[in-house]
């Protein structure tokens, strides 16, 4: 169900994005950092779904808050001539890997559990 929604969202977004207007090059740096923030939010949402503690308010506020903060940081970095956006990228990508690890563990456990159950059922069946 969640996977289907994500796929539909991606397809719709790609279709509309292709026909969307271009933005000036100056702002593409900000958009890039916003993309990373959004990607992080998606992974965070998936991980929290897996952990069964998904909260809509936290998710939405995190999505917009992260994006806006990272854009502001990038702007500040450009003014100060320091690449602050690198820090944002490191944080986001690091969290992405963490979340991916949570998701991976959950599904691996599920898979191994199912295998064990199957083998158990097989062995019990043979005994009978």
């Amino acid at each position: 169900m969640i996977l289907i929604a994500i796929v539909i969202g991606c397809i719709l977004g790609a279709v509309i994005g292709i026909s969307a207007p271009m933005i000036p090059y100056t702002y593409s740096g900000y958009l890039a950092i916003a993309i990373i923030a959004a990607l992080d939010s998606v992974f965070g949402g998936l991980a929290s779904t897996v952990n069964k503690n998904f909260d809509l308010k936290i998710f939405v506020s995190g999505f917009f808050g992260n994006a806006i903060l990272s854009i502001l940081l990038t702007y500040l970095g450009q003014k100060l001539n320091v690449d602050i956006y690198l820090a944002a990228i490191v944080v986001f990508v690091g969290r992405m890997f963490n979340n991916l690890a949570i998701i991976r563990r959950y599904y691996l456990e599920k898979w191994t559990n199912r295998n064990q159950n199957q083998t158990q059922e097989q062995t019990t069946g043979e005994e009978k």
């Binding site: 994500i6 969202g9 991606c10 977004g13 292709i18 969307a20 000036p24 959004a38």
Partner: peptide, 29 residues
């Protein structure tokens, strides 16, 4: 679950739009 699915779908929608725009901008530049 429905609520989660819809929110994630919307976020992915925004995300892909942004990625597509970014790709186009970079290619043109």
């Amino acid at each position: 679950k429905k609520q989660i699915a819809i929110t994630l779908g919307i976020v992915c929608f925004i995300l892909t739009i942004a990625i597509a725009i970014q790709l186009k901008t970079i290619r043109n530049t």
